[in-house]
């Protein structure tokens, strides 16, 4: 009867050996490969540092002008542009300028990396059902696995600092762009693709002239989600030594500094809202052909 009342567990010693084995072999791996892996990510580190320095070195009025101009270019809305400028002025006035620049640098680089890898992966996924079946569970893992669980091996390999932080942000933020690129491409009307084929389009022409433009609204929703998720990771990233708005938030949690946490938290929210509204408005403008209405 003991079979039914007590779960048939693995022997305790065996389990311990298994865990030890995994730990020691990963340590071994990290000792022998850590440096070359770090070297591999060096260009990324270099780029991130340069970009951050550039943002910090640029006089603040110019940054605010650039923010306002980019907001306007993206959304074609004066209100949004003005709102973005005021938010940045307020952030600066409340002493959060440098941290905000660091965070903007991190989010921008993370988003670029996610787009650069996510869209091609999404395209490949849309082409093959088998690849989709393989990648989908990987994306599920990336989104649901507790962040600290993969933070640990990353830190063991690369130490603490900007690059592991960036990797952690990318792991968490990349799934939406991959998923939505794949979905968007798969949702393109079969009739339109048939028409493209019937006129002799090759794979490239079909992809770039028909499929991607028609999937753009979905892909853009993916970019938007990726930015939002990257911002959500800012505080976590600060735990492994990434500078930015996350650091004071973390401090405020440890020391019960209510006002500090609130201000920096709201600065993250302000960034999120600006990025979100601008990218959404831009995405909407890409769809102007959908505004049908028989005005003939």
């Amino acid at each position: 009867m003991s079979f039914f009342t007590k779960f048939p567990e693995m022997e305790r010693a065996d389990l311990r050996d298994l865990k030890k084995g995994i730990d020691s072999s990963f340590k071994e791996f990290s000792r022998s490969w850590g440096e070359s892996i770090e070297a591999f990510f060096d260009p990324l580190f270099y780029f991130l540092v340069k970009f951050e320095k550039l943002l910090l070195a640029t006089p603040w009025p110019i940054i605010i002008l650039i923010v306002a101009a980019l907001s306007y270019l993206g959304s074609r809305s004066w209100k949004l542009s003005l709102g973005a400028a005021i938010s940045f002025l307020l952030i600066g006035y409340l002493g959060m300028w440098n941290n905000t620049m660091s965070t903007v640098a991190l989010i921008s680089v993370a988003t670029i990396i996610c787009i650069a890898f996510g869209i091609p992966i999404g395209i490949a996924m849309s082409k093959s059902d088998r690849l989709q079946a393989i990648i989908t569970p990987v994306l599920d893992i990336m989104q649901t696995i507790p962040i600290f669980v993969y933070l640990l091996p990353v830190v063991m390999l690369l130490g603490i600092g900007k690059v592991p932080g960036l990797i952690a942000v990318c792991v968490y933020a990349m799934p939406p762009i991959v998923r939505l690129t794949n979905l968007g491409l798969r949702l393109v009307d079969k009739e339109i693709l048939e028409a493209a084929d019937a006129f002799g389009s090759n794979y490239r022409q079909r992809l770039f002239r028909v499929q991607l433009p028609l999937a753009l609204p979905n892909i853009f929703a993916g970019v938007n989600q990726t930015i939002m998720m990257a911002l959500a990771m800012v505080v976590i990233a600060s735990m492994i030594g990434v500078k930015g708005l996350g650091v004071p938030v973390l401090q405020s949690i440890q020391n019960q500094y209510l006002a500090l946490g609130l201000m920096n938290g709201l600065a993250i929210v302000a960034l999120a809202i600006i990025f979100d509204r601008v990218s959404q408005q831009y995405g909407k403008r890409l769809q102007r052909h959908r505004e049908g209405g028989n005005d003939v």
Binding site: E191, F199, H289, R290
Partner: peptide, 11 residues
Amino acid sequence: MVFQKFGLMPH
């Protein structure tokens, strides 16, 4: 080719 549902590219 000409298609029943036109097959035009909306974008």
